[in-house]
């Protein structure tokens, strides 16, 4: 493939950049992510992870069943902080943090 081809469109990471970290010893999607930001865009690797898996397969000869999935974290899709810091009373770590914030004369103490 042409080296300038974009692999991660959210973060504009090219084939060449991923190839470089693979030659430097990266073996998993998360290695590549930590070194290049590939997979850290709004889609959270939903678009690029299969393209990256085939690159890992090609470059390192690792069979697909040995290439681990990228880590998928909460929230599963982007959400406004305001929504996450919900009015709901039942839980949420963000909510509890927000609860502890006190306003004094319009300023956070």
């Amino acid at each position: 493939m042409d080296k300038s081809t974009i692999i991660c469109r959210c973060e504009e990471i090219s084939y060449e950049e991923i190839e470089e970290v693979l030659t430097n010893g990266a073996t998993t999607f998360d290695d590549i992510k930590r070194l290049t930001r590939c997979g850290m865009g709004p889609c959270q690797s939903k678009i690029c992870h299969s393209l990256v898996a085939s690159m890992i397969h090609e470059k390192t000869n690792t069979p697909y069943f040995q290439i681990p999935l990228p880590r998928m974290r909460m929230p599963l899709s982007p959400i406004k902080l305001e929504t996450l810091a919900t009015n709901s009373t039942s839980f949420s770590s963000v909510k509890s943090v927000m609860d502890e914030v006190e306003l004094e004369d319009g300023k956070v103490r």
């Binding site: 909460m74 959400i79 996450l84 009015n87 709901s88």
Partner: peptide, 22 residues
Amino acid sequence: HRVIGFYKDGSVGITDEQDVFA
């Protein structure tokens, strides 16, 4: 409504884009 994650007690975190509820 979207499922955005899970709580420690196993409840499902769902958002209606205004709030998140379990």
